[in-house]
């Protein structure tokens, strides 16, 4: 008989755990490597350099407008590989489940992970499940790791930004942050804001078709565009100047930020990338990005400058300037 909730025994290593794997995970994630049922997935070595990454997902709430923790866990790890220029070839999924988690919710998350992995064309080849006592985790934590292959002549690195380079972004900013924040606070907006969670490896592949000479790729997740650009400025020992008027902030995100006292530059994105590349390739790469569904709203937001190394500066709408600092601490609601 199928249980309606996760029980401690589902993590015991005994028959209930095998039932859970057989009934929930295997049918969903099914592929030849996983079907072998070994403790590890064994790949053919396709040659070239290998990229390897891991990330854990503990988002609260686990279901938000436009997605769940499941899609995030797939897209996030694929994107971490893609930001090194790698094409992902396989993912692992480690689940930590809280005793009492509704089976229906787990199945929904698993289905969504499968769909996200299928859409991205990246198989889930190995996995692990643990169940912990009620209160020891918040419903479900997911860790995903991924392996990818970096094509020859691709050398993308956060320390490679050069003076004169163009700074591009693949689409609008702040959507995911507002979607999660509004769900957390029970806020409803006239124009619903949904998470932008999506895999970016195909967009990156398209960009690399135009030129291999891309200096930096980064997905501005936690801490947002502001924090990511600051990291690059420090790593590359350069200044970055962005223009406020070029930042693609959807009106609904702007409105929500005004209401909550947040700055879209610091909100998390889960399906966007920042690209820094030589000016001579910028227009061609931008045109190629715009041909893809992931990069349809791509635009140029600034450039790399020689003065003020380690600092991100913004030209404001009225022609003034200000610094764009890293996010300090947590964003807290303001009082008035």
């Amino acid at each position: 008989m199928k249980h309606k909730q996760i029980l401690l025994a589902h993590g015991s290593g005994g028959s209930m755990m095998h039932d859970l794997i057989r009934d929930v995970f295997l049918p969903a994630f099914d592929n030849p490597l996983l079907r072998q049922g070994n403790d590890q997935a064994v790949f053919e070595n396709p040659g070239g350099r290998i990229a390897f990454t891991t990330d854990s997902y503990v988002v609260q709430p686990i279901v938000f407008p436009g997605g769940t923790i499941g899609e995030l866990a797939i897209h996030g790890t694929i994107n971490d590989l893609a930001m090194g220029g790698a094409q992902p070839i396989g993912l692992s999924v480690g689940m930590i489940l809280e005793e009492g988690l509704e089976m229906e919710l787990l199945e929904d998350i698993v289905r969504r992970m499968k769909r996200a992995a299928d859409d991205a064309g990246v198989p889930i080849v190995t996995g692990d499940t643990k169940v912990v006592e009620r209160g020891s985790c918040d419903k479900i934590f997911i860790n995903t790791s991924g392996i990818g292959i970096v094509p020859p002549d691709v050398h993308i690195d956060g320390a490679s930004a050069k003076t004169g380079d163009a700074v591009l972004i693949s689409g609008t900013i702040g959507d995911h942050g507002v979607a999660v924040m509004s769900e957390r606070k029970g806020l409803r907006f006239e124009t619903p804001v949904t998470s932008d969670s999506q895999a970016l490896h195909r967009l990156v592949a398209r960009m690399l078709e135009v030129t291999k000479d891309i200096h930096v790729l980064r997905d501005p997740t936690r801490g947002g565009v502001a924090t990511t650009l600051n990291e690059i400025a420090v790593q590359s020992r350069c200044g970055i100047e962005i223009e406020e008027e070029r930042l693609p902030v959807p009106p609904a995100v702007h409105g929500a930020c005004d209401l909550l006292g947040l700055d879209p530059l610091y909100l998390a994105n889960e399906g966007k990338l920042l690209a820094i590349l030589p000016e001579q390739h910028a227009d061609a790469v931008l045109a190629a990005m715009r041909e893809t569904p992931e990069g349809a709203d791509a635009c140029r937001i600034g450039r790399v400058v020689a003065d003020m190394p380690g600092i991100v500066r913004m030209k404001t709408g009225i022609g003034g300037t200000r610094i764009v600092n890293v996010l300090t601490g947590e964003m807290l609601p303001r009082i008035c």
Binding site: I318, G319, G320, R322
Partner: peptide, 9 residues
């Protein structure tokens, strides 16, 4: 005032 860069203009 700081965010908009008013002081700088």
């Amino acid at each position: 005032i700081f965010r908009s860069g008013i002081r700088t203009v």
